[in-house]
Design a protein around this nucleic acid. Structure first.
Lengths: 343, 343
DNA sequence: CTCCTCTACGAAAGCGCTTACGTAAGCGTT
DNA sequence: AACGCTTACGTAAGCGCTTTCGTAGAGGAG
């Protein structure tokens, strides 16, 4: 913390304007019970002194903070940075500051981050990003969140179920179904799914949707290989290399997020496979860059920034008696990376 | 803030372990002067009670915070989100939390954000992103930063001069020169620069570098059109439309950041212009996705995450007697979006 | 045995605010 | 004229910690 020896305190403002510290406090925070003339005098003095309230003292005394905490897996990932952007913009409108933590996709780091936010006594905690299918991995997180919520803290999550708090949930399963139907509708039958680890609920849900479509089309979902890799561009490249080796006759790749899809496009290009001529590729999320790729990426649009903003709105509202859920529709966006199945 | 009625305080830990609150404080914060046996007893009690220190109280009492503030123009922009990622990772290692503000590229919002960080008494402020050429726009920011620094606050900036504080400065000008030399070396002479507003120092510096190369090659820099637009993908698209209309015989586009370059590629593709067959395109920054574009983007690499981390390191160090400057080399990365000039 | 030095701890004074409570003044009622 | 109500302010008690200072007891030196 800055040595505040030089920075004025409330009492300095009070002296300068000839009132008590209590009146000064009320005048500056807008609490009623101060006459207009006095309030203006105080504000004037504060301005002249360059007074800025010490938020730590304020929080300690009042028992409330304007800070909200946001936990993301990796801020460098466009999916999360777009969510963060939505949160930051709305938070600024509400005069609230946001503390961001990233976990590097490590479930333990995640719990640590939440604990540290609790220690900071933030006013609300927002958690973005997939949860884990394995309940035992999810349990410590759930515990921490519940304890915070019971103590009166506000929590909202985006894209995560099972935490027992308010949530903004994208239609992952319907989205998966829509994109798979699109691929099937183009006549593709030799399909491969490129996926992050199935331990993530997001991945599992999207895959579920893909399977729904496959089975609705009378196919055996078991016949469609699911290649797993890191949920990143590099993971996409890796999966394509495996695909080219093990399933060379594939005509369509359904990647379960855009990052992997971008890696897929990149590797296919390096390997001399034309898209969508020989192989069609689809993604999921519609990150900003998806439309500017070549070919433009067919994907499922999720309004990330809006999802972040909505989560914040939920967290700022009075807590309901039970956890609220907001579904966010997923919309298929067809661009140039998918085309009719070759011969 | 969470109603802390239920959450244990230091005094509860002290009682539970049969020591004074002072000893409990020392034991938990690792201050010497407590016997090992007592310290362990206290830690044990804290664990059992699920005690987490109230950071506001701690900050108020000790006059120091573990929080550091980071100001970026737009967190959804990969340039900034990669810097943020570097900062967050290193901060986590130091057990520090990061409060991120984004300004939406509005100089006034920027100053407000800094003020709010000061109010929060953060331990250090990091400012990422270009400054403004116009000194009068920059002045309020400079004033705020100086006041904070004089009060003992630590500030570091990345990619910004003239604020009189420690800085991490990418080699924008040499980078601009390098990429322009590359383009010239490929035989291009009908070149267009696609640029953000010249009011940003980053833009001005890069452009300076480009001009250096042009003049070193014996060309008149005045003959090379500089198309300005928003420093975004959409800006890139817009500039290409203008270029196709006004300078149809152009063979090379030097975009001053990757975002614009991506927009250029996108618009050229929609307009049926082949890259690099008819027109070569280069970018600047080397955002993560640059290598996965089609064609892979020739650009100038800046180690964004490292720059963020370095700025944090500077801010965490003991303040020097004078502002330190760290230069970060810019490295030309040649990929597939640039090729020999046609005919 | 006295004196001094350490060490390990407790008492208590804040850090800079907010806010319950007390009070004086002003005004309308009965 | 006495009473109550309201408004506008001041007094002071904390919020939950850290840290200075004081002190009791242990141990060594003289």
């Amino acid at each position: 913390m800055v040595r505040t020896n030089s920075s004025p305190r409330l009492i300095d403002v009070a002296h300068a304007s000839g009132v008590s510290i209590a009146t000064a406090s009320r005048a500056l925070s807008g609490t009623p019970g101060v006459s207009d003339s006095v309030a203006e005098k105080v504000r004037q003095a504060a301005r002249e002194l360059g007074y800025v309230a010490n938020l730590h003292a304020r929080s300690l005394a009042s028992g409330s903070t304007a800070t909200i905490g946001l936990v993301v897996h990796e801020i460098g990932d466009p999916y999360f940075s777009e969510i963060a952007s939505g949160v930051l913009s709305l938070a600024a409108e509400h005069g609230r500051t946001v503390q961001i933590c990233h976990t590097g996709r490590d479930p333990e780091a995640e719990v640590d981050q939440v604990r540290s936010l609790v220690a900071n006594r933030v006013g609300a905690i927002l958690i973005a990003g997939s949860g884990f299918v394995d309940a035992s991995v999810e349990a410590p997180m759930r515990f921490e969140v519940q304890r915070y919520a019971e103590a009166g803290g506000r929590v909202a999550v985006v894209g995560r179920h099972h935490l027992g708090v308010d949530s903004v949930l994208p239609d992952n399963r319907p989205g998966g179904r829509a994109v798979a139907e699109h691929i099937l509708g183009l006549g593709h039958r030799r399909i491969v799914v490129v996926s992050g680890t199935l331990e993530l609920t997001t991945v599992a849900d999207r895959l579920e949707g893909v399977r729904d479509a496959l089975e609705a089309a009378g196919l055996d979902a078991g016949d469609v290989p699911v290649l797993q890799g890191p949920f990143t561009r590099e993971g996409g490249r890796e999966c394509i290399r495996r695909m080219l080796a093990d399933h060379p006759r594939t005509t369509a790749v359904i990647a379960l997020n855009d990052d992997m899809a971008i890696g897929c496009l990149s590797q296919l290009r390096s390997s001399g496979v034309s898209v969508p001529g020989q192989v069609s590729v689809s993604g999921f999320d519609d990150v900003a860059v998806a439309q500017d790729l070549s070919p433009g990426l067919t994907t499922v649009r999720l309004p990330m920034a809006e999802m972040g903003a909505r989560a914040l709105t939920l967290a700022l509202k009075e807590p309901g008696s039970r956890a609220r859920r907001q579904r966010v529709p997923a919309e298929l966006v067809v661009r140039d990376s998918t085309g009719p199945a070759a011969g």
